[in-house]
Every structure is written in C-alpha cells, then in structure tokens.
Simulated assay, not measured.
Amino acid sequence: MHAPDASHFLLFKRILRYVKATLHLDLLLLPSPNMSIQAFSDADWASSSSDRRSTGGYAVYLGPNLISWQSKKQRTVARSSTESEYKALANCSADISWLTSLNPVCHDRTKHIEIDFHFVHEKVARKELQIQFISTKDQIADLLTKPLSSSRFAFFWDKLRPCSRSPSACEGSIR
C-alpha cells in the first residue's frame, strides 16, 4: 500500500470485476437433517512471489451447507509443503472447534509446525477430527488457494452452493 505499482492496480481492477460479477449471488442454505460437519483444507506452498509465504484456506460444511470459509496468507514462511498444509489444517481445526463449541477462543498458532501438529493430533486422538486424503480433482479448498482454470473454478464454485438473488432461483432456501 505504500508503493503501489501497475501490477497492484491490475489486481485491484480484477478484484473489482469479480465483486461486480458476483453481486447477485447469495449463499444457499438448505434445511437438512444432516448435522455432520465436513471440512476441506488446502495450502499453496510458497505461492507469494514477494515473500514466499503460503496461502492457506478451508471450507466447512454443516450437512450440505457451507457455513465457514477462509483464504489467507499464512503469517510465517513455511519451510515445506507439509508445514504449510499443517498450518492450514490447524486453522481449519480451530474453526471447527469453535463452531462445535460456539466458544470464541482464538486458536491461531504461528510459532512452529510442532504446535500445529500437536493441535491436530489431539483432535484426531479424541476422534473430534478425521483426516482423509482428498484428490486435487475433488479438493474444494483449491478454489481458495490456487489459480484455477475457468472450468475448475466453475466446478468448485458450484460446490460452494451459490444462489442467485432472483426470487425463484432459491425457493425453499434460507438466506
């Protein structure tokens, strides 16, 4: 912000075009007896060319409904892709913990990967969290962490269940 150049202006224009093109979209919430929480997390290791910090992101669903998401540059430089993935997973786990307890305690861990590892390990040991490999072709969190082709973006965007604001488009949904 202190020394913007032409590339910053181009990115700003791109963001404004995106916001303008999506103003008509809402988040679709459907009534469902399914109250299970499912989450997807991912990280794009060392993706920032200016400081080599990773971008982490996650999407959390309650039944079929997206209820929480984040895409954020990580606060520290990860020395491996595994470390950046653990940081993203720890942030996702903290959000799930908060959502399940509705106790707004900050669990942001940035000192070292060991803290993230132990945080996640504890959740797995207590059976509060189940870790599964998700193939890149099904990784919804890629939408939040990676540049995607138009077709992959559209595929994952649809998985977020966006809904047009037109009255008939989202009948029976909660906005």
Rank of each mutant, 00 (worst) to 15 (best):
T22C: 08
M35H: 11
P31N: 11
S151P: 02
G57Y: 05
A154T: 13
V60I: 15
C92A: 12
H121I: 04
G57H: 06
L62V: 10
L99S: 04
T82W: 02
H112C: 13
Y61V: 08
T145D: 09
S173T: 13
F119E: 03
V124D: 03
V124K: 07
D142F: 07
W45H: 10
L66K: 03
S135K: 06
S84M: 05
C163M: 11
I15R: 10
D26A: 13
H2P: 09
R53E: 01
A125S: 12
M35C: 12
P4M: 05
I140P: 01
F9R: 15
A21D: 15
L25K: 03
D158A: 11
P31G: 01
Q132R: 15
M35Q: 13
A78I: 03
E122P: 02
S48F: 11
V124I: 06
L28R: 14
R53K: 15
W157L: 13
R17T: 14
L143N: 01
L148M: 07
P4K: 04
A21M: 05
D95I: 01
A125K: 11
F156K: 02
P64Q: 10
R53Q: 06
S32E: 07
E114T: 12
S168I: 13
S41A: 12
L143Y: 02
R165A: 15
